[in-house]
Design a protein around this nucleic acid. Structure first.
Lengths: 188, 188
DNA sequence: CGCCGAGTTGAACTGAATCAAGAAACGTGG
DNA sequence: CCACGTTTCTTGATTCAGTTCAACTCGGCG
């Protein structure tokens, strides 16, 4: 759990009291490889911290679904859209490898927002951080070619390229596995 | 200024005291049509409320820049990435028509976060809202064809299509003006 | 050992980009 | 309020990156 406190501290210094309250709400849960932890149509009830593992966010499609995110250890994961709106999720989440999560329910998080000093500030900064990520991605999808997106990914998250099947990466940068295979050949 | 209070109230009920503090920081400013209010390289110092007008966010490019957002009256505008990080902005903002803004500086907003009860909560919910918008857009860019994006735009923001030159809309949905012109012909 | 999913490669096809030119709409100054 | 110049939109021809369909290879696992 210390990883979680460290992660939060990076955002905003959290007092012992607030941390105790926060951590009392966390529940640990383990998943095997290739387990679906949220299906289309379900409403996301959790904000989870990844202690260990890798997860994939995707919209299933016959013959190649659309993968639009990966989450690694020491970050938070959620179908955050669905979590925030409490409407059914448009996408699925699955584990790619054995994964350990610490989960917080929607209700508990709202209690934290109400009952701790730092809650809303952490929530704000976290939402801002997520906004920045999506904002960057929007620009990349609009202005970069798939090839450039692949090279950026390579530069910024080399571990991703090693650990994740090519077909998911292809989809993440917006092309088919065949096209990515050709790009790879071209640039190497 | 009442519009602003109403907008904030939609997010979270704001007390008179907090509102007075908040509104004391706002400064009104007017722009003419086609004025650049933030250039590439500048760091965004303002979060602004649009009392009236239309603005465009874009990355300039020789022969067709990349437009990735429009903002209308009664919402907030900012190069929010740059504002949050206080790093130089990657993009420009310009007015498309005569525009009136109420501006809040970065420092003042942080004072509001520190000195009002409701500040962080409003900030959080606002950032969450922005996240939801970007998240939706990411999915649309990945899974929809340009044609479908155009039709969605048409459905969701018909006023946008009437008020904004086609070439900006084309860029917003990720294609050239020529291609959009052809899509238009095809579907009508 | 044989199967199966992942990755590669080839060929044909397609939607959008690019280059280019003309038509329409817009606004600005006389 | 008209005339002219500029910008925006349309249309055509060509090119190109990526899709689709299909076959083949490779590596891991039952």
């Amino acid at each position: 759990m210390n990883q979680i406190r460290n992660s939060l501290n990076e955002i905003s210094n959290i007092s012992d009291a607030d941390w105790n309250y926060f951590s009392s709400k966390l529940k640990k849960i383990e998943f095997n490889k290739k387990e679906t932890i949220l299906s289309n149509g379900q409403t996301e009830n959790y904000l989870s911290f990844v202690e260990n593992g890798i997860l994939r966010l995707y919209i299933p499609k016959v013959d190649n679904d659309i993968t639009f995110g990966f989450v690694f250890k020491n970050s938070f994961i959620s179908a955050y859209d669905s979590f925030l709106t409490q409407l059914p999720s448009e996408y699925y989440i699955e584990t790619l490898v054995k994964t350990t999560l610490w989960r917080l329910t929607f209700d508990d998080l709202n209690k934290i927002y109400r009952n701790t000093k730092i809650g809303n500030e952490i929530g704000r900064k976290n939402a801002e951080k997520l906004f920045l990520i999506k904002s960057k991605r929007e620009l990349s999808l609009l202005k970069d070619t798939p090839e450039k997106r692949y090279l950026n990914l390579f530069k910024e998250r080399p571990q991703l390229i090693k650990q994740i099947p090519l077909k998911y990466i292809a989809s993440y940068i917006g092309i088919t596995p065949q096209a990515l295979s050709r790009i790879r050949r071209r640039i190497s």
